[in-house]
Design a protein around this nucleic acid. Structure first.
Lengths: 152, 152
DNA sequence: AATGAAAATGAACGTGATTTTCAATTTCAT
DNA sequence: ATGAAATTGAAAATCACGTTCATTTTCATT
């Protein structure tokens, strides 16, 4: 059975909160974990529908929220109005290609420590952060450069 | 007359684009410049209404977009689904208090240069970035600590 | 000052993502 | 097996924002 650990995490969370285990929740967790990267509710809905044609959009939204509460998923908002979900793991930051939509994750300990230093300077305690670099990835950069007007 | 420079910038932009100067646009610019920090369309709408009770929400949205185009304002999206506007000025990043909503701006050259270095490593060209630290400001931190359960 | 074409306004309606409502169904401790 | 509590899903509501379009304003030109 796939995603043993996460499924157990969910079960534990459900038990602790007097919530119930349902096939919909299991299915959504499975699809979510099987998807790579940063999925939208719509993507999850479409994929889950293949196995469970009667599942509702509502349930997807509710379950994704649940997975966030259970610490299995986390919400991300990039520059559009759409909520994306990623598998919860350690702090990391993102490179987002504005042309093709590619998203790359990176980590940088140096930036992390500098952040805390700056926050302290203003009396803040940092709980979480968001750090996103928007631009063009290698491919798109080349295409943009070629497509652009070449200098006379 | 307040906000001389900005008003002139707007006038120049309107002329250059064959757009018209209207009392609504003037009023919205004025309110926007008079407000501190990071305002929402709603806040601007409410304040402008006091002087111009018939102004519509639509006009506020349109005008804020116009001010962005004219380089006087810039859009910001923090963690919620609401668009905020700030007076346009050089790149800077934000500290956001999750409890009282206070927003502090900061700049850090070191982080900026590190960003480019990282991007280059992944073949990206950075066009813009977003860097936000979420946590508790000095006041809220104290209140949270006092209100919380003290260790036995 | 009057004209009129182009632009702006605002009320109502549309949209897209997400949430709420609620009657019907499912889970699970007993 | 039972039933109280939780869950589901379809439809309607919401929320922020965009579009439409008939009416009003602006402003260069008379």
């Amino acid at each position: 059975m796939p995603h043993e650990v996460e499924r157990r995490t969910l079960t534990r969370y459900l038990e602790e909160h007097s919530l119930k285990q349902t096939k919909q929740r299991d299915a959504i967790l499975d699809i979510f974990l099987g998807a790579t990267g940063h999925v939208t509710s719509e993507e999850i809905f479409n994929r889950v529908r293949k196995k469970h044609p009667n599942i509702g959009y509502t349930t997807v939204y509710r379950t994704m929220k649940l997975l966030c509460d259970a610490g299995l998923a986390s919400e991300r908002h990039f520059d559009d109005a759409i909520t994306r979900y990623e598998i919860a793991h350690e702090h990391h930051d993102h490179l987002v290609c504005l042309r093709c939509g590619k998203i790359v994750e990176f980590e940088c300990a140096m930036i992390e420590s500098t952040q805390n230093e700056i926050a302290a300077r203003y009396g803040f305690r940092v709980l979480r952060h968001r750090h996103e670099l928007y631009g063009h990835c290698g491919n798109c950069r080349d295409e943009v450069d070629l497509g652009g007007r070449t200098p006379s």
